[in-house]
Simulated assay, not measured.
Amino acid sequence: MPLREHLRELRKRLFLAACGLAVGAVLGWILYDPVFKALQQPLLDTAAHRDGFISVNFSGLATAFDMKIKVSLFLGMIVTSPWWLYQLWAFITPGLTRRERTYAIGFLGAAVPLFLAGSWLAWWTLPTAVRVLTDFTPEGAANLIDAQVYLSFVMRFVIAFGLAFVLPVVMVAVNFAGLVRASSWAKGWRWAVLLSFVFAAVMTPTPDAITMIAMALPIVVLYFAALGVCFIHDRRTDKKRVADGLPRLDGTRPDGG
């Protein structure tokens, strides 16, 4: 596909993803109150545990309105994840045959649960992160947390781990599209493991190593699971091509030529 067509396809997919996100944001706007309570609950629980004053602070005149918009978009991104993940798949694999496009079902069937699992894992550790970080507040002092800062912290934490869990599925999608072979992914496995732990260290707000390892290990496991799927797919593809008298996708022939 020419570069111009790629850019048009990218613009189309971004537009469709944005439309879906806008629809999800409307639902987020409607559900803002219970969602905001859920976002604030870790702070309230920590305040009750420490018997201190910890609360979200709206420091500006329009801060409450701005936060409602951001929370709506945040929830919209979570709710519409099947839609924009499909747009990602459709952009990666625009030239596949009709039969190969059926892989989209498998892609979404794996990507959506993994995105939600990564988001849930981050959400599950959020109360611990809030408790550890607020424990540094001196005795007798109040902790007024800026609403914008707190929301950015939660959004980055949840969405980043959701996307990190989807990356192995993108690896498989690119492999199935014939763009990258499993051997190419395998050459960088050391970097993949290192980057997984660096990512967990940066994104995990707690200073303890146990939480960092607990967040990094699922990403590493998913990477190697995706690598295994890619190797199986390459082997099947090569066998089929050899049976048809064609060279393997890496350019070699069965006789070594």
Rank of each mutant, 00 (worst) to 15 (best):
L133Q: 09
L27K: 12
D238Y: 10
N143L: 15
R8Q: 14
W124H: 15
V220T: 12
L85W: 00
L167N: 04
A111Y: 01
W191A: 12
A243F: 01
R50E: 12
F157P: 04
R131C: 09
A38K: 04
T46P: 03
T46F: 01
F224P: 13
I219L: 15
F153R: 03
R248K: 12
T97N: 02
L88A: 12
L96F: 10
K239S: 02
T93S: 14
D250G: 05
F107V: 07
A243G: 03
P138T: 06
S183H: 12
T211F: 00
T252S: 15
A182K: 09
L7C: 06
Y32F: 15
A182C: 08
F136R: 14
M171I: 02
K239C: 00
S55W: 03
W89T: 12
D238I: 02
L126V: 03
D51P: 00
V35N: 09
G245D: 07
G140K: 08
V180Y: 01
V198E: 01
V169K: 03
F65P: 04
T93H: 06
P113W: 03
S196F: 06
A142N: 08
L73N: 01
L16Y: 13
Y223M: 11
I145P: 00
F199P: 09
R98Y: 09
V202Y: 06
K37Q: 15
A182D: 09
F115E: 03
A164W: 06
A48F: 05
W189S: 15
A129F: 05
W29F: 13
A226K: 05
A64D: 14
G60A: 13
F157V: 00
T204L: 00
H233P: 03
S119M: 11
D51N: 11
Y103N: 11
